[in-house]
Nucleic acid binder design. Structure first.
Lengths: 155, 155
DNA sequence: ATAGAAGTTCGAGTGCGCTCGAAGTCAAGT
DNA sequence: ACTTGACTTCGAGCGCACTCGAACTTCTAT
């Protein structure tokens, strides 16, 4: 079956290292992946889906401790308490992610603004250089002030 | 001047700890904050603005090494190379932040979807419980299947 | 049959970004 | 005079999430 992956392939597919895949398994984030000759792991599509989801949680800042808790609940099955708590956890995390999201947007705006200011400064500096060059030819004539405020309390 | 802050106040204002403020200063992220009686620091508005900006960079994943580089460029002044490189750095970071942003949005959508599925499961479970309760009164009558697919390859 | 590549376990090591603790200075209040 | 408390430096320590290394087994190809 071409849909079963070796650990290398799983690593390539997820972007995790083989080390990390084994690490996740031994700490219990991934439950024991089936083995072929009682040694080599093979990863099934369902394993891959779960790992992809773990990556989403991690990359959005959920600590491994919490992911372990979630994994334990999932392992336990779909009894009402498990479902309720998993739902709660994801709601909480969604909340955190939403906050992070607006923070990122905020920062992105600031970054764009600063890049804009730097572009303006570059023009100013270029203009000043031109003026200087001009002065070398045509003394006495005074240059226009094209200087703009530099970004961010810069010295 | 009420606009000068003690380290405590600066910590409160930024959300950093006093430890972190001093740490940032000694590694060179913040350049030496002026002292009052040649010992106690006081933070000026411009220091605060810079720190706020640092926090934005950090919280959007810029490593401290890079921030140090940026800080060094800024310290150096507004010569063309410094400006050009700072601009470049922020452009690069903006790029990374934008990527992170879409990843977060992606994850947020997945989280909402899963929460939705869990809600559906809860209803299903409740319905099943109701059926069971009914059966206790009215044996023999068979219950409707209200079960829905559970989220994420759950066992 | 033998080399080499890919897999295994498990404990130890690493890098990052703080975080803490000890020992000391200084200013104000009782 | 003395306690209190906010500050100082500086090195050591910590928690997290990997990451690596050593020693070993197993499969595939020549």
């Amino acid at each position: 079956m071409t849909t079963l992956l070796t650990i290398q392939q799983a690593a390539a597919a997820t972007g995790l290292s083989v080390h990390t895949l084994r690490y996740y398994e031994r700490i219990g984030l991934i439950d024991p992946v089936p083995r072929q000759t009682n040694s080599h792991r093979f990863y099934r599509p369902e394993d891959m889906r779960w790992i992809m989801f773990l990556i989403k949680l991690r990359s959005t800042g959920m600590p491994i401790q919490q992911m372990l808790h979630y994994a334990a609940l999932r392992r336990r099955g779909d009894d009402p308490e498990s479902v309720a708590e998993r739902k709660y956890m994801l709601e909480q995390h969604a909340f955190a992610v939403a906050a992070e999201l607006t923070a990122l947007q905020d920062t992105l705006a600031v970054l764009h603004a600063k890049v804009g200011l730097y572009s303006a400064m570059e023009e100013t500096l270029k203009a000043a250089a031109d003026n200087r060059r001009e002065e070398n030819i045509d003394h006495g004539k005074h240059n226009l002030r094209t200087r703009r405020e530099p970004p961010e309390g810069s010295r």
